[in-house]
Amino acid sequence: MQRIMITGAGGQLGQKLIGAAKAAPQDWRIFAYNRSSLDITKPEDIRAAFAEAQPDICFNAAAYTAVDRAESEPDRAHTINVDGAGLLATACKQAGSAFVHFSSDYVYADGYNRPLQESDRTEGSSVYARTKLQGEQEVLRCHPEAYVMRTSWVFAEYGENFVRTMLRLGRERAELGIVADQIGSPTYAADLAAAAMRLATSGQPAGVYNYANSGVCSWYDLAKAVHELCYIDCNVKPIPTSHYPTPARRPAYSVLDTQKIASVVGTPRHWREALVECLDKLRTRQ
């Protein structure tokens, strides 16, 4: 029986990782830690967790993800996304454990007008982006055999995400203005988790892998799809990014090329198909 360890287990991806592990054909013993049971920035917490779990594989879904707040909390974002990730990677390397770390489309440089490949240029255009990029670098420095999965626009039927926000606002307001000039690929956390499980046991070379559901849309397109599928009568209007200023800069184009990981897990399904499943599950929870 293999032993797997999941950090950030209370979040939307962490919960889906638990579900994917339970559904996997392997006979896995699961050790899941949320923020209160394992603070990845504290070496003593990591030592205790590794002593208990003795993992064959560790999945790190713990992260600082408040993109705008990071602009005013750069030290905290760095401590979690860089230092904490490095501590986990080091512990995995010392224990002989495989390590899967999750990163973001924000790390890519702007200027590409095609799906982004793992080898494309990276840069940090915001505090969040810089800490996620530095976190990747620290993970691979501490554990060169680790997997880093870059993903984008993650949603699930629970947690804080764009899909749930659009459901709430669509029911509260008669009209919404949604940014239409930021283009990307939504990712259902359940699909990302299942892909991570397969990658971790695939024997594929270490390094960076993109993963997102297939298809391309804007935030406006995604909001419209959520409302149409849930029969919500809300007038959604497209607006430019300049009409919705935020403290942190967002990527204008962050569609991910997933050909590399498709050779391992198959071509990801279309985001709209995944959204239908997510919304169906959300309805059953209400």
Rank of each mutant, 00 (worst) to 15 (best):
R173Y: 12
F102Q: 05
L229V: 02
A49Q: 03
A200S: 14
I178R: 03
M166E: 10
M166A: 07
T65I: 10
D233R: 06
R285H: 15
K93C: 15
A146F: 02
V154Y: 07
D191R: 09
G14S: 11
K42N: 14
T65R: 14
I183W: 00
F59I: 00
G215L: 05
A61V: 03
D181S: 10
I57M: 06
N60L: 07
R150H: 01
Q134H: 10
G159K: 03
A77D: 06
H101Y: 14
R76E: 12
S214A: 10
D191L: 07
A98P: 04
T267D: 13
T165A: 11
I80S: 07
P245I: 02
T187I: 08
T284Y: 12
F155A: 10
Q259T: 13
R69L: 14
G14R: 05
P25G: 05
E73Q: 11
T131G: 08
R76Q: 13
L140H: 04
D221C: 08
S254Q: 05
A195H: 09
N60I: 02
L133R: 07
N34P: 05
T90Q: 13
P74K: 01
N161W: 05
G19S: 13
A51D: 09
S119A: 14
I30K: 01
Q2T: 09
A48S: 14
Y108Q: 03
E175T: 06
D75K: 11
V236H: 06
S72Q: 13
H243M: 13
T201M: 12
L116N: 04
S119G: 15
A23M: 01
R269L: 02
E277K: 15
L176F: 03
R173K: 14
G10A: 09
G159F: 09
G84S: 09
A174N: 15
H78E: 15
T284A: 15
D39S: 12
T258D: 00
W28Y: 14
A85E: 13
L279T: 03
A53K: 07
L169R: 05
A189D: 09
V67W: 02
T284P: 00
R168P: 00
A98G: 15
M166F: 08
N113Y: 03
